[in-house]
Design a protein around this nucleic acid. Sequence first.
RNA 1: UGGGGUGUCGCCAAGCGGUAAGGCACGGGACUUUGACUCCCGCAUUCGUAGGUUCGAAUCCUGCCACCCCAG
Length: 360
Amino acid sequence: MARIVVGMSGGVDSSVAALLLHRAGHEVIGVFMNNWEETGEDGVCTAERDWADVRSVCDTIGIPYYAVNFAEEYKERVFAYFLAEYQAGRTPNPDVLCNREIKFKSFLDFAQQLGAQHIATGHFVRSRACQGGWRLLRGVDPGKDQSYFLYMLGQRALASAMFPVGGMTKQQVRAVAQDAGLPTFAKKDSTGICFIGERDFKAFLQTYLPAQPGEMRQIDTDAVVGRHDGLMYYTLGQRRGLGIGGSGDGRSWFVIGKDMACNVLWVAQGEDHPALYTREAEAIQPTWIAGHPPMAEGESLHCTAKYRYRQTDQAVTVIWQGEGLRLTAQEPQRAVTPGQSVVLYDGEVCLGGGVIAKAW
RNA sequence: UGGGGUGUCGCCAAGCGGUAAGGCACGGGACUUUGACUCCCGCAUUCGUAGGUUCGAAUCCUGCCACCCCAG
């Protein structure tokens, strides 16, 4: 019997997380976070609906609920970084930061102020206490594992967090929700940036970052093959939106790289173009779940990695050198993108990861 | 101005008298707590234009228009 504050999004997963903890006899409090002040458009409706779903679910379970607003923190600690990274030509992952800074920091602080011993979320991950401290494990459902997004969590967060659905499959979660009569049992999974949601990404960025049109050039020949609207609107490996179809040999065009200094977008034709693949990469700002690296400086670590969410595990060799990590993948990796996160695993254990700085 | 060639979806391109392939681009959807990738579906009642031949033409004939090449 403990007081547990559950972060509820209005989706099935967190609904079931709250339900299970309540059934286990804990004192559960549902809290809805509203961290994005909509500047207009639609979007507003979905946040309102999610909040309504949270109230409805909590009423069904029979637990109290509250709403908190971390919009200020989100803007300062997540969104500012998000924009700065895009401005610099990189492709950030705001959600990994959101988890570290908001859900497992601001929210955790808030919960502790309420006298909670734990917080809980509907993430598909598991945590386990071992001799060396807390470990983060993949979720049991291989298709829904979300450890990739939580690799920046530290010991304090894991010591306080509970992940009630991490040992279940999505199917089981929905079944439990349906049996319990939770109104969110069939609700579609949410996607898009956490708290901001699904939207026309380029249009969204354009409202914050001004367009700076320039040339698109073929990586091998330097030939100008088109115009771009601004380097920050494109990411490596991207195919759609280039608008130069039909030229060259007729195959699809992909973004290969960006030259920020010359404002040139490098592109190449064909999904198998060699410039799209690399095996070496450098990751900076390494963070470890354990609080320290699993290997000594200069020593190499053989493990698996995900260069993007839902990628199948890739065998890599990692060397910790100076500021960052040097990764060598066994197989060529497609479009390893600066700003994105590479997350490391030892079997079921998520070790941590870093932010990709460059790849070659 | 002569001679030759070409004009089919935004781009490339099949078709060669029997009632408009395909690729790229684009649009929509699926997938997905980032951005991407991927997958699925859609996308020319119409073939530069005006007539003619024919049961029937993008496909044959004629005029015109446009562009390209060679002469000059």
